[in-house]
Amino acid sequence: MPEPTGVIHDIGYQRYTGPRLGRRAVFGALYLHGLRTAFGLGRSAKAKIFPWLVLGIVTLVAAAATAVRSQIGEVVMTYAQFADNMSWLVIFFVAVVAPELVSRDLRSGVLPLYFSRPLPRSDYPLAKLLALATALWLLLGGPQLLMFLGAAFTGGEGMGGVWDELLDLLPGLLYAGLWAVVFASVGLLVASLTGKRAFAAGGIVAVFLMTTPIVGVLSIMPSRAVNELAFLASPSTLVGGVGGWALGDLLGPQAPVPIGGFGPVYAVAAVLLVAGCVALLLLRYRKVAAR
């Protein structure tokens, strides 16, 4: 490594008298930085591989579904179903990106550089959370838009057809938003607990996948109420439950998770889960900032 020889050319130091932006702009800068980080932009080529691989796969799936529909006329999956079908990829995307967003900063010790600046300590985790949720929403929403464009302009049913498709697309995008918010808050909370990216990724996968057996066990218990509430135990089935209740047959003729009449319970549980994760995340950074 060549050591700089310490030769400093004296061109003089300029004081800065221009504007200094407020909290909103600083939050925006941190959010944009996080969103770019999520997709590996401004990073090494290695950091781009995984996000773009996942993005490529979901786009390919959407393109294939669109192609099948326009050729055969059979709807392979609805917009809302798309998010459900991609859940595995979403989990792996979170497992890679959430540690990239927060664990890396914990490990490199860069946080004191943030918290010694006029950045309220809650803004750091909130900006990262928003960035991750946006990235997930783009991941699920982007391909849906592709499917919409394909369906709307190859259907040949004129403006009425486009309008019908749009009415199908919007709930799908909302549902993708629910996926994004729930998975981002759980994933980011887990990732913020450790500076080791591998541990964080493993922890995230564990939280999302290890809870599935619990659902399995509960759903074969000899009680109908327990069976119908079983899907609360895992984030993915929880989201599916809320979707089935709110979107009805947009998720297919049969609800993906049979929750009976407990729909509102699922909705409340989802809200509580997100609120709880955000509260813990803020608490976590209250502690980290003082270190």
Partner: peptide, 13 residues
């Protein structure tokens, strides 16, 4: 540059 923005500087500045 990023940390300058966090201190409230506009991006180009």
């Amino acid at each position: 540059t990023h940390l300058g923005q966090i201190s409230g500087l506009p991006r180009t500045v």
